[in-house]
Design a protein around this nucleic acid. Sequence first.
DNA 1: TAGATTGTTAATCGATTAACAATC
DNA 2: TAGATTGTTAATCGATTAACAATC
Lengths: 210, 210
Amino acid sequence: MSRPEGVSISVIKRLPRYYRFLGELKDQGMIRISSKDLSERMGLTASQIRQDLNCFGGFGQQGYGYNIESLYEEIGRILGVNKVRKAILIGAGNLGRAVALHMNFERRGFHIIGVFDKNAALSGQIIRGLPIRHTDGIYDFCKDNSPVVAILCIPSIAAQELTPELVKLGIKGYWNFSHYDIASNFPEVAVENVHLSDSLMTLSYKISNF
Amino acid sequence: MSRPEGVSISVIKRLPRYYRFLGELKDQGMIRISSKDLSERMGLTASQIRQDLNCFGGFGQQGYGYNIESLYEEIGRILGVNKVRKAILIGAGNLGRAVALHMNFERRGFHIIGVFDKNAALSGQIIRGLPIRHTDGIYDFCKDNSPVVAILCIPSIAAQELTPELVKLGIKGYWNFSHYDIASNFPEVAVENVHLSDSLMTLSYKISNF
DNA sequence: TAGATTGTTAATCGATTAACAATC
DNA sequence: TAGATTGTTAATCGATTAACAATC
């Protein structure tokens, strides 16, 4: 890897898709692939693929192409899916439960160790093998277990109230399903937003205008 | 509106956020705002806001700025949230159920009229006031009710099998939570993808490198 | 009118694509 | 070696930012 700090967000956002395609090709038993072949399968230019990969290093071989298995491993390492990161899920409503049950966190380097909700009526209920705890217990839980990631499946207002504390408790990564703007309030942490309602409105626009 | 066909996807993706901010300002009772003031609140440049809005028309007034209420209405119209679009939800697993129960579809112009799952054991169960139907009934249901949107909360393989039929049945818009690439196989329909696992891997990258 | 702020053109910046020498 | 394909530099394209005349 050359110098990941300089890599643009456009490139980074394409990495999971490369990883996914390479994983499929690997599972199909393919050994090698050229940037041209991959570009046709993915609907990109070969040039873009080579440029993207060369942000991180020269993984190919002239005249041969790329070894699928080792490129897959490399991109996995770049993405950090080989790490084990302790994560807590905050908000056990419909969305929180679905995220907890639907995602294969382990395969992407995340390990859910705690689930929290401020609705006391949910306390003790089991999700994904974990008891729902009351939000008031987050402070002690983090002191004891040192999670580094929080998954926020709560409304903006709750996220706004809670985030300063989470940052203080050492949570470094936020998968944020709320509209609260963590990134601009806490530039020192990593934030990935999922704005489902924005996505739905984008679909609405596309239907209207395509 | 000038000519929406020419508007880039970068601009379109910012519209829901403008809509959200303007809605909040409106609810706070604010009447007018300048591109400069809005830019500071949103973390953009004033120039970008004016450029973005002028893709669709001149909604402001020199020396005054923008009327919040009317700009909010205009952007809502551009996004098409004032429309009523009949939608079906396909897949009533954890994710499908959460999407059905969590999203305020009506406020964004969507009206869920049917829920389908290929697991017969779920048939008849009520979600959001609607009975889960077996996937086999989609053909007849669409003939009778003419939905124009499908929300796909099913695995890639199921999406791949089902989509050709949905396209034939006249479904024009797809909110796609699967990894099946609808857009490149059916360029004539509108597709908005939500790739949660890609988003999670992007977070993983950011944690590793920020 | 004077001040403020837009709409719009021009300049800059960054990302994508093309080209090709290096090399397996 | 000859052919294929990379890594990388240069050219192009598009998006963002700056500037400013128009005008409310």
